[in-house]
Write a protein that binds this DNA or RNA. Structure first.
Lengths: 246, 246
DNA sequence: ACCCGTTGGTGGTCGGACCACTCTGGCACG
DNA sequence: CGTGCCAGAGTGGTCCGACCACCAACGGGT
């Protein structure tokens, strides 16, 4: 069957599929070094140019990594390696899509926080507490807030969950929310939420953690909704929008 | 700073960044056609080979799409376009990571199904019903099962949610589960789950939908857990593992 | 006015060449 | 004998020029 299918399928794509297949069936394992581009190209019967494009695609996906002069290697295939790709979504998104992103986080974060309350060990809880203090006292509130939530999700021990959630929480989005919160005077409310979440974690109370996380995401979602309704053009980046004629 | 950085940065990566920049600042808008590969290469001062690798990377990310003989276009940048990237995770993953993926789906699918029960219109419900019949009657149970769940998530109207969930539901994983289910004789149970979900949707009962979806995912998760416990090495591909010396 | 073949332009593939980098082995020096 | 260096081979990175496959628009024929 492959013969007929291959007829009208781009060579590069075939090469990508073939390499993925060899990874998933174990011929290429995590950390292994692949044959040279030249050998691989000869093996699959394609030119090195096409093989390089295939490898480039898999590098972009986070499946492979190449070291100049040393070789091409299969990554550890940890979910966190495949995170960066997805974060592009949250970065590029604006307006209505951001609401969608928040809706997904409203499904994930409560469950994740509840899971963290049940699973987190003392060291992780202590680390989360430290991050909480950074938010209250420090100036780098944006990255601190981001780190706080990421640490909670990481405490679930589910790397896939952490990767997905991180992808949905881009730094640029947090920056925008924090800027809006500050000028809306909601910082106090946010701090309250964070402490409620932290207390629930310390008490190892999944239900309370879930409730607190839900309330937190909901608050951000409500704020974004009113901001989007109020002004069609967001406040942070508004002047960079005069390109619609060509 | 870019000048000094550029010195030791791979040409291809620089090209990727430059194109992304031109998209985000509006010089290339969604749906627009890019200049020729040859022109673009000359413009950025790189060879066409390198430019093609850069374009290939952005195609992989879902930002660009190319039509043979017509040109390269910027996608609509809708979340669903950036979906395929993530599905690689579910495809390549094995063992413990698959459990993590299912855990995430256990958080998403119940909430998504509940949302669908509240939001789906008659046409969507009818479509879902059709897909359900395909599962019961047809032979292509795998793709039918996949389509059933995707249609439900799509009925929530949240494209981002659909993209994330689809990414977590790779065809290869479903194939594996279905093969296991069939030999374990759990097909009847699965069918029961599907009908319960469908009824809840028809009744516009979010709570019932949530419960049914939870039970469904939980059943798959339990099956996978026992299979993984039973045999350390998965059953599908096991004999292809004799490459450790070189 | 409509249909269809021609033709130019575009992405897709190829092969080869050269450069930049890494690694390793052996040589010279201490 | 031990240590350091350096030269070579091997690998990915980049470039070039050519040709093929495909699409779309233009044009002549009916």
């Amino acid at each position: 069957m492959t013969d007929l299918d291959a007829r009208r399928t781009p060579v590069t794509q075939r090469a990508v599929e073939e390499i993925k297949r060899r990874i998933s069936d174990g011929r290429f394992g995590p950390g292994d070094r692949l044959p040279t581009e030249r050998d691989l190209a000869a093996d699959l019967g394609v030119s090195r140019s096409s093989m390089r494009e295939a490898i480039r695609a898999l590098i972009t996906l986070g499946v492979l990594e190449s070291r100049h002069g040393a070789g091409v290697y299969v990554t550890a295939l940890r979910p966190s390696d495949l995170l960066e790709t997805f974060s592009v979504l949250a970065e590029v998104s604006q307006g209505a899509t951001l609401l969608e992103v928040l809706q997904v986080r409203r499904m994930l974060e409560p469950a994740a926080t509840a899971l963290a309350a049940a699973r987190a060990d003392d060291a992780q809880l202590a680390h989360i507490g430290t991050l909480l203090e950074d938010i209250d006292g420090g100036d780098g509130t944006v990255s601190a807030d981001l780190g706080f939530h990421q640490a909670i999700v990481a405490a679930t021990g589910n790397a896939t969950l952490a990767a997905v959630n991180d992808g949905l929480s881009s730094a640029s989005f947090h920056t925008r929310v924090w800027a809006g919160h500050r000028q809306a005077g909601l910082t106090a409310k946010l701090r309250e939420d964070h402490h409620r979440i932290h207390e629930a974690l310390l008490a190892r109370d999944p239900d309370a953690a879930r409730a607190a996380a839900t309330a937190h995401v909901l608050r951000v979602e409500d704020w974004l909704r009113t901001e989007l309704r109020g002004q069609a053009a967001p406040g942070v980046e508004s002047a960079v929008r005069a390109d619609r004629e060509r």
